[in-house]
Amino acid sequence: MGKMVNAYIVAYNSLQSVLWAISFALIVNELLGSSYKTVNQNVGPVLRTAQVLSVLETAHAALGLVRSSVGTNLLQWVARTHVLVMVVYYIPEVQEHVAVTVMYTAWALAEIVRYPWYACSTAGVCPDWLTWLRYTAFIPLYPVGTLGEIVLVYLALPIVKERSLYSFTMPNLFNFGFDYYTFLIGALCIYPFGWWSLYSYMLKSRNRKYGQKKQE
């Protein structure tokens, strides 16, 4: 049972590593070839597949296959997938913005470190330099990625308002209403806090890993 689970986790993380590596290669290809404006068009399908698929990580945590928090996993997945699908995919006006390229690049770079690290450390063959990268690469990449998300949500605001996108108005028999524009503003207010709680958590675990050695 334990072996099967391990094999599955290694396989899953390997698959994700490959998907994100392809995404990164496609980004580089776009930047070298034409311009950043076509990044979403050509990288989007693969990157979205990888990101949507990563909902499995919440399932892994819920089933106890990996030791991580279900809530944190789900929240991260929802936040990223929301920007990727509800904002970038469905709002053509923001697709050519440079923030898309910045966000995709930061995500891809972070993931081509994180997934191989998971795969290797589950398999028990993790080189030290990969562990070091896993605990270091996020320091610049995570803020840049989040900044990209925030900029894209901000850019989407006037378009969402103009089209009353995803809004559900009363009166109706459910006695419920939803205003996506207000939701986005609320999300923008919460973003810095959510970001900081996760970032400081990661910094702390980095300190646990590398900080103490110097003291001892």
Binding site: T169, M170, P171, N172, L173, N175, F176, G177
Partner: peptide, 9 residues
């Protein structure tokens, strides 16, 4: 908010 709404049905 929803039950006291003017458009409550």
């Amino acid at each position: 908010y929803f039950i006291c709404h003017p458009f409550y049905t």
